[in-house]
């Protein structure tokens, strides 16, 4: 589904990703772990198409298509979803109105019929309860005054609503207490299907106790330096990044 080959990415002329290669198949959950500054967020942004991230070498192929050639909105319509580390607050746009605009924009782009407000509301409600997203939150301006946990729950609600093929979770655990983390992880796990791939990006092993990955990659200084099964997370926790990076060298 996702095939990243020898990817080099620069931001403001400074190279952050230095030859990253990664393959993710449908139905699999891969985790990217790494210390601060290793290039984790750069990877998530370059996959979602944020401007300012220049691909200087290598390729990103998604379902046979050159992902880098697509605008962010085209990627979204083709099923790429990035749950962001810092969801933005937008005063003046209600959460519900945003969800409807986004869902219908994606449908329009795929040549599907747009849904009316009632249908969207029913779909949102059906997903919201499990994530403890209240009616009141849906009426408020997007993310304005939301707690860290509320923002992350809303990201996962969007993931449930948009039903992406490839979901990228960027530090979804940051800023969450253990109850909020459990709730978010349950939401994510309920979205694991044989058709959907996930890339879970995290600094800490903690999240991977709840979202158990099929494969773990360790990112350091812009490259994958170690790979393994879910047990690699425990090894990282015990030894620390420094030792793993050293062992790999």
């Amino acid at each position: 589904m996702l095939d990243i080959k020898n990817l080099r990415v620069a931001v403001d002329g400074k190279e952050i990703l230095k030859g990253l290669t990664l393959k993710v198949e449908a139905g699999r959950v891969h985790a990217i772990m790494g210390p601060n500054g290793s290039g984790k967020s750069t990877l998530s942004y370059v996959l979602a198409g944020r401007s300012g991230y220049d691909i200087t070498e290598g390729s990103i192929t998604y379902n046979g298509e050159d992902l880098a050639a697509l605008a962010p909105e085209e990627r979204a319509a083709r099923g790429v979803f990035l749950a962001m580390q810092y969801p933005v607050e937008i005063p003046g746009v209600t959460t519900m109105m945003f969800l409807k605009s986004a869902l219908n924009a994606q449908r329009r782009s795929r040549g599907e019929l747009e849904l009316d407000a009632i249908t969207v509301l029913k779909r949102v409600r059906a997903k919201a309860a499990a994530l403890n997203v209240s009616e009141e939150m849906l009426k408020r301006a997007l993310n304005v005054g939301f707690s860290g946990g509320e923002k992350k729950r809303l990201e996962i609600l969007q993931m449930a609503l948009f039903e992406p093929s490839l979901a990228i979770l960027d530090e979804t655990d940051s800023g969450l207490d253990i109850d909020a983390l459990r709730l978010v992880a349950e939401g994510v796990n309920s979205l694991r299907t044989p058709e959907r791939a996930m890339l879970v990006i995290t600094h800490y092993q903690r999240l991977l106790d709840y979202i158990v990955p099929d494969r773990i990659h360790v990112l350091a200084k812009g490259r994958i330096v170690a790979e393994g099964g879910k047990e690699l997370a425990l090894e990282l926790e015990a030894k620390g990044y420094e030792q793993i990076v050293k062992d790999a060298a």
Partner: peptide, 21 residues
């Protein structure tokens, strides 16, 4: 970027933000 990453085309996203402003 947030709106576009959610599938809202650039022009529509700009309109949404101007209205919101």
């Amino acid at each position: 970027f947030y709106l576009r990453a959610r599938g809202i085309p650039e022009q529509e996203a700009r309109h949404l933000l101007i209205h919101a402003f």
